[in-house]
Structures are given as C-alpha cells and as structure tokens.
Simulated scan of single mutants.
Amino acid sequence: MSDRFSHMDADGNARMVDVSAKDNTKRTAIVRCRVLLNSNTFDLLVRDALPKGDVLTTAKIAGIMAAKQTHALIPMCHPLPVSYADVRFEVDEAGHAVGIEAEVRTTGKTGVEMEALVAAQIAAATIYDMCKAVQKDIEITDCRLIYKSGGKSGEFRND
C-alpha cells in the first residue's frame, strides 16, 4: 500500500499524522448547521417552555464541551489546546429553525475544523434531545465548514 494517504502507513496501517515539523500558526474554523422544527416545537423553544428546560443555553455548553473533547471521539484527531470555542444561534421564525454557528480557535500545528464540526453537531443533537419529547421528526441539516484560516493551506471561505 502506498504512503500517499496521510492516515495510513506504507503497510496500510492506520496512524496519526506526525505534525511535529509543522509551524505553529493561529488557526480558526467556523461551521454552520440548522435544526428544523415544526411550528409548535419552535414556539415552545422561543418561549423557553420545553419540558427539559433552557434548550439554547444547554446546547451552547454542550457544543463548547464537545469542541474540547473532539480528540477523544475521532480516532486520529490530535488533542489541541483550544484557545476559544463558541456556539451561536440564529432563531429563524419564518423557517421554524435554529441556525447554529460554531467557532473554534487555537495556535498550533494542525487545524480546528473537526472541533468546529463536532461542536456544531453536538449542539444540534442537544437541541434535538431537548425537543424530542414534543416532536419526533426534527431534522438536522446543512452542516458545513464555512471558514478556516491558518496553516499551509491558508484561508478558505464557503459562503
């Protein structure tokens, strides 16, 4: 087997990429996704009247915690010193949706795209969990990296 795959050695065995020779740079990643609700569930969410409590505060904390634990969830991810993590919400009344934006920053040898992806998805899953008592057909959609900076590849925008 060729050594051209970064997470495989020449014999085809899984490995963590060696980033020790890379320079430390400031790195940022931003991911967005959406949680689609029906009108009743959406109304309960915005009125903070769901049976499990304050959905968005709980989802924010869950997303931030998830960003810091990504290396424990995805086998080849490097543990990173997360210097900043935030999860923000946009409440879309017309679409009965909650937009989620997760941002993670570090100064290091590898990027934080995975941390931002995990943060957004865990925040979305937390919203799902806290709303499932009143709605079973909740949808989590459109999860994507919208911005990254730092490292050899530089800046990426996906607006």
Rank of each mutant, 00 (worst) to 15 (best):
V82N: 03
V82G: 01
S83K: 08
S83G: 06
S83D: 09
Y84L: 13
Y84G: 02
Y84P: 00
A85Y: 02
D86V: 12
D86T: 14
V87D: 04
V87E: 00
R88D: 07
R88T: 09
R88L: 07
E90I: 15
E90Q: 14
E90W: 04
E90D: 13
V91T: 08
V91N: 00
D92A: 09
D92L: 13
D92T: 10
E93V: 12
E93D: 14
A94D: 10
G95N: 11
H96S: 15
H96V: 02
H96D: 14
A97Q: 03
A97G: 11
V98M: 05
G99Y: 04
G99K: 06
I100L: 15
I100S: 10
E101Y: 06
E101P: 08
E101F: 05
A102H: 03
A102L: 04
E103V: 00
R105E: 11
T106G: 00
T106R: 02
T106Q: 09
T107K: 00
T107I: 13
G108Q: 12
G108D: 13
K109S: 14
K109N: 15
T110F: 15
G111L: 11
G111A: 14
G111W: 11
V112A: 04
V112L: 05
V112G: 05
M114T: 07
A116I: 12
L117P: 01
L117S: 00
A119D: 03
A120E: 03
Q121A: 08
Q121W: 05
Q121C: 09
I122G: 00
I122M: 04
